[in-house]
């Protein structure tokens, strides 16, 4: 390999890496908008890694169409007129998402091309997160529900869990707090009217719902340090 190629290949590698990083960050932010709190580390999700690498490859290929002189649309948009291949790689990596998601990828408001593919990728990531999150919550509840039911009445599970959720969401935006508080209010209204009985299906459903509500909006931090919880 000639010495001349090394900066160019390094630039392409930088473009790939920075594009992948930018995509992971963008996925995290946009998914957080939907899920309110992203329940699992997104950078460990295979679909997220695949989407990030795909966009990274687009950046690496796009890099070879740039020279920093701004004599093409791709070059002007992505390279920011950087002739230094390392800086150009950085620039292309950070800017490629703009190209993928630009109005060039829209037709009469409908996403086509890059934007369409990018949205499909994000749907795939959310589906994967949802599937894993469901499995996690189910396993967590099955593991800890007996301890929660056994904890009644001292200390009362529901008092502690509701206090835990409130403490964690109070630093969140107002809309988030209202959204979660509405659900808490609705769930508490469904509190069984029969005396507490750990063998009762109604109480089990109520405790499970509280536990899942806590996991969904405050995470398992609500239960950290709880006796007999794992």
């Amino acid at each position: 390999m000639s010495a001349v190629d090394i900066p160019i290949l390094s630039g392409a590698a930088l473009a790939l890496l920075f594009a992948a990083f930018t995509v992971l960050y963008d996925c995290h932010v946009s998914i957080q908008d939907i899920l309110k709190r992203v329940p699992l580390p997104i950078y460990r999700e295979r679909p997220a890694i695949a989407v990030a690498l795909a966009c990274g490859l687009v950046a690496a290929v796009a890099f070879f169409f740039t020279n920093g002189r701004g004599d093409s649309l791709v070059d002007s948009v992505l390279s920011l007129k950087q002739t230094n291949p390392y800086l150009r790689g950085l620039s292309v990596g950070l800017m490629v998402l703009v190209l993928i998601r630009s109005k060039l990828s829209n037709f009469e408001g409908a996403a086509i091309g890059g934007e369409w593919a990018y949205n499909k990728g994000r749907e795939w990531v959310v589906e994967s997160l949802n599937t894993k999150w469901w499995a996690f919550k189910t396993a967590y509840c099955n593991r800890n529900l007996p301890s929660a039911l056994a904890s009644f009445p001292d200390p009362a599970f529901e008092t502690q869990v509701l206090a835990g959720i409130q403490a964690i969401i109070q630093v969140k935006p107002q809309l988030y707090q209202v959204f979660v508080q509405s659900q808490i209010t609705n769930v508490v209204k469904s509190r069984p009217s029969i005396p507490f009985d750990p063998a009762s299906v109604q109480w089990e459903i109520y405790y499970r719902t509280l536990m899942n509500l806590a996991l969904d909006y405050a995470g398992d931090a609500v239960f950290s340090g709880w006796k007999n919880f794992s």
Binding site: L35, F179, T209, D216, Y217
Partner: peptide, 17 residues
């Protein structure tokens, strides 16, 4: 649903007014 992901029917009903 979008914020919680999949959810059991009875839990969903309990969380709604």
């Amino acid at each position: 649903l979008q914020s919680s992901g999949p959810i059991a029917l009875n839990e969903l009903v309990m969380r709604l007014s």
